[in-house]
Structures are given as structure tokens and as C-alpha cells.
């Protein structure tokens, strides 16, 4: 059985989490540049130009793109022919986040108890860790630093099957209408549909991992993504929320079979600092 040490996982997570906070993915910068050609509001275009400049400064100064360096969401796809040695996966990931926080001068944004004392854990741990056991002998890790401004803007609904795709689209547009201007637009929307309540929420986060502009597998869903994109842009929220024609840069939907009586829909809003980084061991 192929061995991967906990230390290797820690090293990779520490590197990825810093990279994600300093280097905006190229496809996101490209989406800003494309939006500059479409945005009709002069102030909106200024905002987009500033975001491109911000990405350049973050990379050259090695200063985080945004001061909210996120709660660490970590996806680990672990091959079932791999043995992780020298420690647990959970510990390896959290030690990696702690190291990224210290080495990268990232912000400690996590409180130990959500309801009561809300004391800061001081090292930005624990991560939210999603593990999937997959075929093969590799460990594939993706990190997604998630800021609270956009995370707080998301919603979930248990729709009726009769609500259908139209009900899904209405719910997503309504969510952006309510919360979009304070979630740092232009936005990316990750949508999870189907499964159970928890599964839909996880799918909505996974949907954010698909690069902006990359088409999904299902032609019907691709059409729905396009329809939602157009309707959200018609809201007029615009870059920074100051009004404009570009409110959303990408919509991605992931789906799963569901119960005959259910239609769960989750929408996870991602701000324009759509940070992620991945690597394989």
C-alpha cells in the first residue's frame, strides 16, 4: 500500500492555504477583465479595475487579497489504496492551517464556541474538513478560504418537487436580491440541488470549486446556470453594490438524486475574492 505521511499532508495544506490567500486564480482575474468590457456603470468599471490591481498587489507584496482570510474549508479526496501514516488526517490538516496562519500572517477569525463566549481559537483552526474515499492511490487536496461576508449571505430551502427548476431559479435570484450587495459583488454562485438538506449544502460548496465559465456535465443544468446568471445581472446591484450591469461572474450547479417528496436547494454565495488552491500527493 502506498504511504503518505501526515507531515506531507501538513506541508501541502500549509502551502495551499497561503497560496490561495495571496494568488487569485487566473480564471478569476480573466473574469474581471471580461466584465470590464461589459460593465456599463463608470463606477462599476472603476471597481473592477481596482480588483485587478488588488490581485496584482497581493501577489507582489505577499499581502492577503482580503483581510478576511477565511474559515478554512478543506476537501480531501483520499485514495483507498493509500495509508496515511504518522498521525491522523484531521490533525495533519489543522496543523497545516495553523502553520499557514503563522507563516503567512493570516487572520485568526475562528471562535471556539458559536453561541457563548466566542473566544478566538488564536490559530484559525479547526478547518471544516470534507473527506471522500475514492479509487486510486493518491491524496487530492483542495482548500477554499471562505470569508464570512459572502458565507453569511447564503440560504437553503426545502422546496416542493412541483416548484421545479423555475422555483429553484426564483429562490436563487431572491437570495441575491436580499443579500447580494453586502456579499462583495461581483459574485460567484454555487448551487446544490437534490439529495438531503446536508447533501445540498455540501454540493453548493463543491459547485464553487468548478472554475468560472467551465460548463457542467448536464445540458439542462447548464441552461439553468445561464438563465440564473442573466436574471441576477438584471438586478442591477453591480460591482461593489454601487449599481451596474455585472453583479454575477459565474453560476455553477451540482445535483444529486433525491427523494420523491423533496427538492432541497442550497445557494452558497462566493465574493469576488474567489480563492482556492489544490494539490496532489
Amino acid at each position: 500500500m502506498r504511504e503518505v505521511t501526515a507531515g506531507q499532508i501538513t506541508d501541502l495544506v500549509a502551502k495551499l492555504y497561503q497560496d490561495a490567500n495571496f494568488f487569485l486564480p487566473d480564471e478569476v482575474t480573466t473574469a474581471f477583465e471580461d466584465a470590464l468590457t461589459r460593465e456599463q456603470s463608470p463606477l462599476g468599471r472603476e471597481v473592477l479595475a481596482s480588483l485587478i490591481e488588488n490581485a496584482g498587489i497581493a501577489a507582489s507584496d505577499r499581502v492577503p487579497l482580503c483581510q478576511d482570510t477565511g474559515m478554512a474549508v478543506v476537501f480531501a479526496a483520499v485514495g483507498q489504496e493509500v495509508a496515511i501514516t504518522g498521525g491522523s488526517l484531521r490533525e495533519a490538516v489543522d496543523i497545516g492551517i495553523d502553520r499557514a496562519f503563522r507563516e503567512g500572517y493570516l487572520r485568526a477569525s475562528i471562535v471556539a464556541h458559536p453561541c457563548f463566549e466566542r473566544d478566538n481559537t488564536g490559530d484559525n483552526t479547526p478547518a471544516v474538513l470534507h473527506v471522500e474515499l475514492v479509487a486510486g492511490d493518491r491524496v487530492n487536496i483542495t482548500v477554499l478560504p471562505k470569508g464570512a461576508g459572502s458565507e453569511n449571505a447564503g440560504r437553503i430551502a426545502m422546496l416542493k418537487p412541483g416548484d421545479g427548476a423555475a422555483g429553484l431559479a426564483d429562490f436563487v435570484v431572491e437570495t441575491v436580491d436580499m443579500n447580494g450587495a453586502r456579499a462583495c459583488p461581483p459574485l460567484f454562485l454555487g448551487i446544490g440541488v437534490g439529495g438531503t438538506m446536508d447533501q445540498a449544502a455540501l454540493l453548493s460548496k463543491q459547485a464553487l470549486l468548478r472554475p468560472a465559465g467551465a460548463a457542467g456535465a448536464d445540458a439542462g443544468l447548464a441552461e439553468l446556470e445561464q438563465e440564473i446568471l442573466e436574471r441576477v445581472n438584471d438586478l442591477g446591484i453591480g460591482p461593489g453594490g454601487y449599481g451596474g450591469t455585472v453583479t454575477c461572474l459565474g453560476v455553477t450547479i451540482e445535483s444529486y438524486p433525491c427523494h420523491i417528496s423533496s427538492l432541497p436547494v442550497a445557494v452558497n454565495i462566493q465574493c469576488h475574492a474567489a480563492r482556492q488552491a489544490g494539490g496532489v500527493l
Partner: peptide, 13 residues
Amino acid sequence: LAALGGAGALLAR
């Protein structure tokens, strides 16, 4: 006043 959200590196300068 509104400062530009998500432009933390630019504003730091």
C-alpha cells in the same frame, strides 16, 4: 463611507 470590499491588499498601501 463605503470602502471597496475585498481590496484588502490595495487599501493596505
